[in-house]
């Protein structure tokens, strides 16, 4: 993957938007990588959690297209381990919301096979709808 950093991107409104929604201090991350080392689902992600933060720091809106934000289960392992006290789960929620607040649902329950849908308990359906739909 080619990564281009530019001053124009760095000055993009992404950091402001993410900070407004998450209330996290994005620039305090110094890229130690502890979040990625501890994440139980890192092997399913295209960008590691520390890379997600770096992309946001550099204003790179490409981060909005990554798979990572939809794989995060908000288990807060990264938050407990972060030496700078950043809640990365909050950051991922902010990135998800930048899609969802434009009414761009990530999950369409209607596309799931009916027999699977019927087996899922409410707690699974409601929590996934809360995380993946507007």
């Amino acid at each position: 993957m080619e990564i281009k950093v530019s001053l124009k991107k760095v000055k993009s409104p992404l950091v402001r938007k993410v900070t407004e929604i998450s209330d996290e201090k994005i620039y305090s991350c110094y890229q130690c990588g502890k979040c990625s080392a501890g994440c139980p689902f890192a092997d399913q992600m295209d960008l590691l959690p520390n890379q997600v933060i770096r992309f946001v720091q550099l204003g790179m809106e490409e981060v909005l297209d990554c798979k990572t934000i939809w794989v995060c289960s908000a288990c807060f392992t990264c938050r407990v381990g972060c030496p700078k006290g950043i809640d990365i789960a909050n950051l991922n929620e902010a990135l998800r919301l930048l899609h969802l607040r434009r009414n761009q649902d990530h999950l369409k329950l209607g596309k799931l096979p009916r027999e699977e849908l019927l087996k899922l308990p409410q707690i699974a359906l409601i929590s996934s709808l809360r995380k993946y739909t507007a």
Partner: peptide
Amino acid sequence: KTVCCGSYLTVDKKEVVAEM
């Protein structure tokens, strides 16, 4: 004992949850 099972990923990424 404190590793996440995958939670609501079970709805649209069940293979991830099954692996965990």
